[in-house]
């Protein structure tokens, strides 16, 4: 069965919205059709320029910038939720605490683990410190600053809530899906395989009662949807799953992975709140077309699909 999607990967996802503490109040940040929208910052670009010139940057702008920085960052898949049950309750207080912790910077000492101290520029090191050591220390400090900023970014993006978390994961998976099909170009393949395993494992457990550690995932390349087979018995029992990387974006991120006890492997007609998908009743079975409908509460953050 050939499945060639021609819709955007997010066609089965409704918009979603979060409230972000910004300035003296809270502002709405909205995701709609693949884009982040800051309705209360109509000229976000101008605000960003002003901030670059020394002005204070609005948190909404920071969030949007973080979103853009990480929309193809595979770390999002490694950190973000594996499913609705994998609750990540990061709040804006956590973000603020992380920002304050990072504000003073850190000086890497190589041994004083966890000891915070004001960052000193390399030029301030004692002249007797060899140049090579100074370079390494400076490089280590820069790396640490980068690590800390990434963490603050991640916390901000997680604080937007589950709906945004899975949509961002969809962006990342879609950004790498084409390259992942090519083994020669697929530097992202290990991260995508792990991301798929981490997400399809709990789904398979719910579907078949199999231990997620017994699910073996590979990336499928080709025009068809892939394969799902059950092999072995007892401890040697394995669910061999080969699905394209885009499954993460089009199906998992849209909350479509398991509908009416069917493992959804492809989308035939994308849309929200109605779509037609291909679902497996059992491993090794032929996929069945299913007309599905989002019967959730309309909030749209996490669609609840039904046949």
């Amino acid at each position: 069965m050939t499945v060639i999607p021609n819709e955007d990967w997010f066609a089965c996802l409704p918009g979603c919205e979060a409230r972000v503490p910004c300035g003296q109040g809270t502002h709405a940040v909205r995701w709609e059709a693949g884009s982040l929208r800051l309705s209360e910052h109509p000229d976000a670009e101008a605000e960003a320029v002003l901030a670059a010139l020394g002005g204070e940057k609005a948190r909404c702008i920071e969030v949007a910038e973080a979103w853009a920085r990480h929309a193809d960052d595979l770390s999002v898949l490694a950190i973000g939720p594996r499913g609705p049950a994998d609750e990540i309750t990061t709040g804006w207080d956590d973000v603020t605490a992380a920002q304050q912790g990072a504000a003073g910077g850190f000086a890497f000492t190589g041994s004083a683990v966890g000891r915070r101290m004001p960052m000193r520029p390399a030029a301030g090191l004692h002249p007797s410190v060899p140049a090579g050591v100074q370079r390494r220390r400076l490089r280590a400090q820069e790396e640490l600053e980068l690590v800390r900023r990434r963490r603050t970014d991640m916390l901000s993006l997680l604080a937007l809530g589950y709906g945004f978390q899975v949509r961002l994961a969809g962006h990342v998976a879609a950004a790498h899906a084409d390259a992942a099909d090519d083994p020669a170009e697929g530097r992202a393949r290990p991260a995508l395989v792990a991301a798929m395993a981490g997400r399809i494992g709990p789904v398979a457990e719910q579907w078949l009662g199999i231990d997620p550690d017994q699910v073996v995932v590979s990336l499928h390349a080709g025009p068809d949807w892939g394969s799902v087979e059950l092999t072995g018995r007892g401890e040697q029992r394995r669910l061999q799953v080969a699905l394209p990387a885009l499954w993460l974006a089009r199906i998992w991120a849209a909350g479509l992975a398991l509908v009416d006890r069917h493992l959804v492997v492809a989308v035939e007609r994308a849309g929200w709140p109605d779509a037609r998908v291909l679902g497996l009743r059992a491993p090794g079975a032929e996929p069945e077309p299913l007309e599905v409908h989002d019967g959730g509460d309309g909030a749209g953050h996490a669609p609840h699909w039904e046949v």
């Binding site: 393949r189 290990p190 991260a191 395989v193 792990a194 981490g198 709990p202 997620p212 550690d213």
Partner: peptide
Amino acid sequence: AETFLRLLAETELR
């Protein structure tokens, strides 16, 4: 090699 390490991380996180 990288896939092994990442899958181990998934197992530990789970």
